[in-house]
Write a protein that binds this DNA or RNA. Structure first.
Lengths: 230, 230
DNA sequence: CCGGAATTCAAACAACTGTTTCAATCTAGT
DNA sequence: ACTAGATTGAAACAGTTGTTTGAATTCCGG
């Protein structure tokens, strides 16, 4: 069906994704795309029809990298706290990626969030909603007595914390300085956001007001995230 | 100094702000702006020089609405928790505004965050940083023992929660349905985000989980207390 | 090797972009 | 009323945009 190959259509889609993610729909030009893809200018019309259909296809293409969360890591035997930790870490991995090839996928999704196009329905249905319901399930396990409204708001609280480092990255970096911002790496932010949210939900110790040193007490990598000797 | 008047320059700036906020820099056209402002096409060149300078001026203009937080509400006698609550509420008021005339100010700032232009330096220096340091001061009062890194991350956690409702509004609405989304109004979100964050910081009861008494009130001036206890 | 379909290519198209020009008009100051 | 400056107006400019065309080329089953 789709292209792992190096066909013109696939290169076009990849180039379009990067260009659209970087400059937006209006900012990106077909000529820049076909140059990046080393294709002819008529190729986009031949393979996709017009610029807008190419954009929609690029957004849809950026999905495939988004649905790989499910099989990867979730272990039903893990505690809700540990599952949340894995969820946050996986989310942040994509959010903090800027150099690798997958970076434009998330960037394009962000643009689609800010200014939904015809592709947004598909985007929500096939990518965002599955992720969202996964998080909702984790939170419901963690807080069995919370009503749905509270679960939704809490999900948005967690997603919002993660996405902020994607959305406001340039501004945040300028705000606190490059050095301080560089210190907020994947490990630290995973610990912080997980700990912050777990404490908010009543699981685990509060953040920051430690009587001890400031290192977050949640275990760092694939260990159990839950229990911790304060 | 500037225009409360109805001069062409002022109308141009207002129209440009709306148009830029809605369509982005590349998407907005000068002709659409001058049509909205009922001005001639040469006016933008005469008053501002070119399109980019007009954009920068529009971004700068959107500041004036942003610095009014300081004098308004903060009472040094309030507790840190109460100050945080006012901060969050004030932030959310702007974030959730979509219909009123000020809505494009925030929208434009969001665009500037995603894709900083020459105006971002001024934006950070004169608007964002003052707000940010105000929040940092509140958090430092709340958590005197937290180091700066933790304070920064916690600030971003709070800001991220609030901004998410601006950034992802169309997607979030489609995600949970219009009715459920409409339930997340200013009052509810203020309670939720404030409670969520205070609990995370170790002040106040956790959110949503019934294992403890979720009614334990945090002192709130504006009337109702903690989040709705079902 | 042949022949038809699929694909690529260079060139040109019309529409729209931001910008400029210069004359027309309006607005004080005298 | 007159004039100098500020502002507005309509038209045209050069450049770029997305799109189309039709021939040239490649690909592949017979």
């Amino acid at each position: 069906m789709s292209q792992a190959q190096d066909t013109t259509k696939a290169r076009l889609l990849e180039a379009a994704g990067e260009e659209f993610a970087e400059k937006g729909f209006e900012g990106a030009t077909i000529r820049a795309i076909i140059e990046r893809a080393k294709a002819n200018i008529a190729a986009v019309n031949y393979h996709f029809g017009d610029k807008e259909k190419l954009y929609v296809q690029a957004v849809i293409e950026s999905h495939r990298c988004g649905v790989d969360m499910e099989p990867v890591c979730m272990n039903p035997a893990d505690s809700a706290a540990e599952q949340l930790r894995l969820y946050v870490r996986h989310f942040l991995e994509r959010v903090l990626a800027i150099d690798n090839r997958d970076s434009w996928h998330h960037k394009l999704m962000i643009r689609e969030m800010l200014q939904p196009s015809h592709a947004s329905e598909t985007l929500v249905r096939e990518v965002i909603r599955p992720k969202f319901e996964r998080l909702m399930a984790i939170l419901q396990r963690a807080c069995p007595e919370a009503d749905e409204k509270r679960l939704i708001a809490s999900s948005f609280s967690i997603i919002g914390q993660c996405l902020h480092y994607k959305m406001a990255r340039p501004i945040a970096e300028r705000l606190v300085g490059p050095d301080a911002f560089a210190g907020l790496d994947l490990d630290y932010l995973t610990d912080h956001i997980t700990g912050f949210s777990l404490a908010a939900l009543g699981i685990g110790p509060p953040i920051g007001c430690g009587d001890r040193d400031s290192r977050t007490p949640v275990s760092t990598s694939a260990g159990n995230g839950q229990g911790d000797p304060r």
